[in-house]
């Protein structure tokens, strides 16, 4: 039994002009202790997908379809009440940019204590003890619980967010761009911390990022998103070594590899599509260098290339047929 199994998750945003198809037919799964990277450019729907899992979406969002099974239990139809017992305790999210959202006029420690008291119904004393423990876990000096957010550096604030996310021993932690906007060295520190925690507590982790390199180093499997759809998914090494989708290939070659040759790859022409009316057929066809006739009209089905390595591209089916 998988820890988390998501099938055909589809979420649209409703606007005056129509629906923004931000997340369409997303299928993912995650095992215990496994790290899954969800990579994609800005506005490809990564955050939408993550928020759809625990229904923390903005008001104009509509989950149209899909099943979410957490430890075998279907939670896609869960009521708000049930969701409240799932969020944070079973699936917790480190929100994008949350480290800048700490209340600036309250002590960092108090903010965690308060959250624990409200959600976990802990006593004051217990919550304080737990907070100190968590600080220890994320390698911040316990003395600093009494400081204010502005006395913390960016890296430390992100550690606080991690501490909050793991406070209730969740089974799944979703990190939405947890290292974006951090310095290289601090980014490495934070990734290391996440990796250690995951190993130690056997948590499943979904790491959302636009930075391919983050995924390459820390994730067991990776899913590449483009314009609201997953175009390729598979074991990290497989995807990096034998990328099957032209978009993945272009992304990987745009990534400078200091162990390889010094070579400036060409960029993908054009711009990401408008999700209000996404292109027909394959959503990537307008920018694809290898486009063939069916790409413009038919949505490519996903093809399994090897165990667990899937990609959605018409070229693949053709190769398989030949």
């Amino acid at each position: 039994m998988r820890l988390l199994e998501v099938n055909n998750l589809t979420t649209y945003y409703k606007l005056k002009e129509g629906y923004v198809r931000a997340c369409e037919n997303i299928s993912l799964n995650l095992d215990k202790g496994e790290a899954l990277g969800l990579v994609g450019e800005s506005a490809s729907g990564k955050t939408t997908a993550a928020l759809s899992l625990v229904k923390l979406l903005p008001e104009n969002a509509h989950v149209m379809d899909g099943s979410i099974r957490l430890g075998g239990r279907e939670i896609s139809g869960a009521t708000e009440e049930e969701l409240r017992t799932i969020r944070w305790k079973e699936i917790s999210i480190i929100f994008q940019g949350a480290m800048n959202a700490l209340n600036p006029v309250r002590r960092v420690g108090d903010q965690i204590v308060e959250a624990l008291r409200i959600h976990e119904k802990m006593s004051e004393k217990e919550a304080c003890r737990r907070t100190a423990e968590l600080f220890d876990k994320v390698e911040i000096d316990q003395e600093r619980v009494r400081e204010y957010p502005h006395e913390f550096s960016g890296g430390m604030r992100q550690r606080v967010m991690i501490a909050m996310a793991i406070a209730c021993n969740p089974k799944v932690v979703i990190g939405d761009e947890p290292t974006t906007a951090l310095d290289v060295m601090v980014q490495a520190q934070v990734l290391q911390l996440l990796e250690e925690l995951r190993r130690e507590w056997q948590m499943g982790m979904i790491l959302i990022t636009h930075d391919l390199s983050v995924v390459g180093e820390t994730c067991d499997r990776v899913a590449v998103m483009y314009a609201g759809k997953i175009v390729e998914a598979g074991p990290t090494e497989k995807v990096f070594e034998q990328p099957a989708h032209p978009y993945t290939r272009a992304l990987i070659s745009a990534f400078p590899n200091i162990e390889g040759e010094r070579y400036l790859a060409s960029s993908i022409p054009g711009n990401p599509p408008n999700l209000l009316n996404p292109p027909s057929g394959c959503r990537f066809h307008e920018r694809c260098q290898e486009v063939i006739a069916p790409c413009k009209t038919d949505d490519p089905a996903s093809t399994e290339l090897s165990s667990g390595h899937l990609a959605s591209c018409h070229l693949l089916k053709r190769k398989v047929k030949l």
Partner: peptide
């Protein structure tokens, strides 16, 4: 050397080979 050791490479590597500096500038 520390900076170079944390340059990401596009494949799975062990985090052991890196020199992680403590703290920030």
């Amino acid at each position: 050397r520390a900076l170079v050791s944390v340059i990401p490479v596009p494949k799975k590597i062990s985090l052991a080979g890196r020199t992680l500096l403590k703290g920030e500038t």
